[in-house]
Simulated scan of single mutants.
Amino acid sequence: MLAPNGQWLTQDRPESPVRLLDGPTAMVELAAEIQHRIRTTRNPPDDEPDDTPHSRAR
């Protein structure tokens, strides 16, 4: 949510605390956190077999 003063308020879940993003650097840091979470929850470690369709095409 964009606040009237140009700052962004974010929240992971309804019960989690609200974070104030103060400026472009904070927005980039949030984007990096989100990308990291997506990558670490989607891709298994290299030593574990990956059974997804894209892995079989390699």
Rank of each mutant, 00 (worst) to 15 (best):
56 R>L: 13
10 T>V: 09
19 R>Y: 10
47 D>K: 15
16 S>D: 15
27 M>Y: 07
4 P>V: 05
51 D>R: 10
19 R>L: 12
28 V>N: 02
7 Q>G: 00
35 Q>W: 11
29 E>V: 05
29 E>C: 07
53 P>I: 04
7 Q>L: 07
32 A>V: 15
2 L>P: 03
45 P>E: 07
25 T>Y: 14
29 E>H: 11
47 D>N: 14
50 D>A: 01
44 P>D: 01
12 D>V: 11
42 R>P: 08
35 Q>M: 08
9 L>P: 01
40 T>D: 09
19 R>E: 09
46 D>G: 04
16 S>Y: 15
37 R>K: 09
32 A>Y: 12
3 A>R: 13
39 R>G: 01
6 G>Q: 02
25 T>A: 13
1 M>R: 11
27 M>N: 09
57 A>Q: 14
3 A>V: 07
41 T>F: 14
32 A>Q: 15
45 P>N: 08
48 E>S: 02
24 P>N: 09
53 P>F: 07
12 D>W: 13
31 A>Y: 09
36 H>D: 10
56 R>N: 05
4 P>R: 08
25 T>N: 11
36 H>C: 06
22 D>N: 15
4 P>A: 10
1 M>C: 12
52 T>P: 00
5 N>R: 14
15 E>S: 10
48 E>C: 03
17 P>C: 00
46 D>A: 10
55 S>Y: 10
4 P>W: 03
37 R>M: 13
46 D>I: 01
56 R>S: 05
52 T>S: 11
30 L>Q: 04
20 L>V: 06
2 L>F: 06
57 A>S: 14
58 R>Q: 06
34 I>E: 04
6 G>C: 00
5 N>Y: 06
43 N>H: 13
10 T>S: 06
14 P>F: 02
13 R>L: 12
50 D>E: 02
40 T>R: 15
11 Q>W: 01
19 R>C: 11
46 D>E: 04
38 I>D: 00
20 L>Q: 08
20 L>H: 06
41 T>D: 11
50 D>W: 04
51 D>A: 02
9 L>C: 07
56 R>A: 12
44 P>R: 05
8 W>F: 06
19 R>M: 12
23 G>P: 09
43 N>T: 07
40 T>L: 14
22 D>T: 12
56 R>F: 04
32 A>F: 15
36 H>G: 04
14 P>L: 01
17 P>F: 01
10 T>H: 00
24 P>V: 12
51 D>E: 03
54 H>L: 14
14 P>M: 00
56 R>Q: 13
49 P>T: 08
36 H>S: 15
51 D>L: 09
41 T>L: 14
17 P>R: 01
20 L>N: 07
2 L>N: 07
46 D>C: 03
17 P>M: 03
55 S>H: 12
25 T>E: 11
28 V>S: 07
8 W>L: 06
47 D>S: 13
31 A>D: 07
18 V>W: 12
40 T>F: 13
29 E>W: 10
9 L>G: 02
8 W>K: 07
9 L>H: 13
3 A>N: 14
10 T>K: 00
44 P>Y: 01
15 E>I: 13
31 A>G: 10
28 V>E: 10
43 N>M: 10
10 T>L: 01
49 P>S: 10
14 P>H: 00
56 R>P: 00
51 D>C: 03
11 Q>A: 03
24 P>E: 10
26 A>I: 04
12 D>R: 14
8 W>H: 05
29 E>Y: 06
51 D>S: 07
21 L>G: 04
25 T>P: 10
